[in-house]
């Protein structure tokens, strides 16, 4: 009796997540996969095959765009880590009590505003008639208006800005769990700031670093809004390319194939990253 009711409770609790997984993730992906392996051979005539995938590898534009997107995302992840680590270390180790809560909250507050609005904020700052351009002109540093938007640097700024929170939060959590006495023991045994950082702090924070990097990399790779708005129409971002296939070209077959390739290739990059840093997915995701 008792085990029956507890079993029922277990399935009832499991139902929402199962429903979510099956209806919103698994089913659409199966559908998308079916679409991606159908080749158009004539009006309303389809044949099963991997031609769409072959197109990706055959057409340099596609895989070069993918490579560019992946490299830019890795770069954005590295920049986010370099910027986020000191912030997280400061919040977790060098502040106490209210200051800590306040600083943590200040990191979060920008994210209460929609990404679209935040990206427009950057556009207001960076565009030709924007705040920075005007300020430079009035200071007499430049003679005419400068266009800071629509280049790779602008994309990078936007990507780092939108994803830094997802780096800071897991880092603060893991650094918080580092006992201060370990750092003190390091100094006591003759360690310098650099060697303590390298031998004690970073190994301890590794799960947080890796999980932060995975999240930031995936968010950057799958970001659509920021590269399009800040990079303009020449941004050549892979998600933008998928969008074009679906909406502009109405080539759902190729779009689906590109979507699947994005999933497979980004998973491969994450897997490679985990192997290189000698971390396991369950370790890093279980910790935070």
């Amino acid at each position: 009796m008792r085990s029956d009711t507890s079993k029922l409770g277990f399935y009832l609790l499991l139902a929402p997540i199962l429903l979510w997984l099956v209806v919103l993730i698994i089913l659409p992906h199966i559908g998308l996969f079916m679409v991606s392996i159908s080749e158009k051979i004539g009006p309303r005539e389809f044949e099963t095959g991997f031609g769409n995938y072959a197109t990706f590898f055959g057409e340099p534009l596609y895989w070069r765009t993918f490579a560019r997107t992946a490299i830019m995302s890795i770069l954005a992840t590295a920049l986010t880590l370099i910027l986020g680590f000191p912030i997280a270390y400061y919040i977790a180790k060098l502040t106490r009590g209210r200051t800590k809560t306040t600083l943590f909250l200040m990191c979060m507050i920008p994210f209460w505003v929609s990404e679209l609005v935040r990206t427009f904020g950057w556009m207001i700052l960076l565009r030709e008639t924007g705040v920075i351009s005007n300020a430079l002109q009035s200071l007499g540093l430049v003679s005419g208006p400068v266009e800071l938007l629509y280049n790779d640097a602008a994309i990078m700024v936007g990507l780092v800005y939108t994803s830094i929170l997802f780096m800071v939060v897991p880092l603060v959590t893991t650094l918080d769990s580092l006992d201060d006495s370990l750092i003190e023991a390091g100094y006591d045994l003759g360690g310098t700031s650099t060697s303590i950082m390298r031998e004690i702090v970073i190994p301890h924070a590794m799960p947080g670093i890796v999980s932060g990097c995975i999240v930031v990399f995936m968010l950057s790779l799958g970001n659509y809004l920021t590269p399009i708005l800040l990079g303009g129409k020449d941004s050549l971002w892979f998600t933008g390319m998928i969008y074009t296939q679906f909406i502009t070209r109405f080539n759902w077959e190729l779009g689906s194939a590109l979507g699947f390739l994005l999933l497979a290739l980004s998973s491969a990059i994450v897997f490679l990253g985990l192997k290189l840093s000698k971390q396991s997915l369950s370790d890093t995701m279980g910790r935070t």
């Binding site: 006495s181 370990l182 003190e184 023991a185 390091g186 006591d188 190994p203 301890h204």
Partner: peptide, 14 residues
Amino acid sequence: VSMVFQHLALFPTM
């Protein structure tokens, strides 16, 4: 001087 800490502070990552 060297110190043995209250909770020993052995480095768990090594």
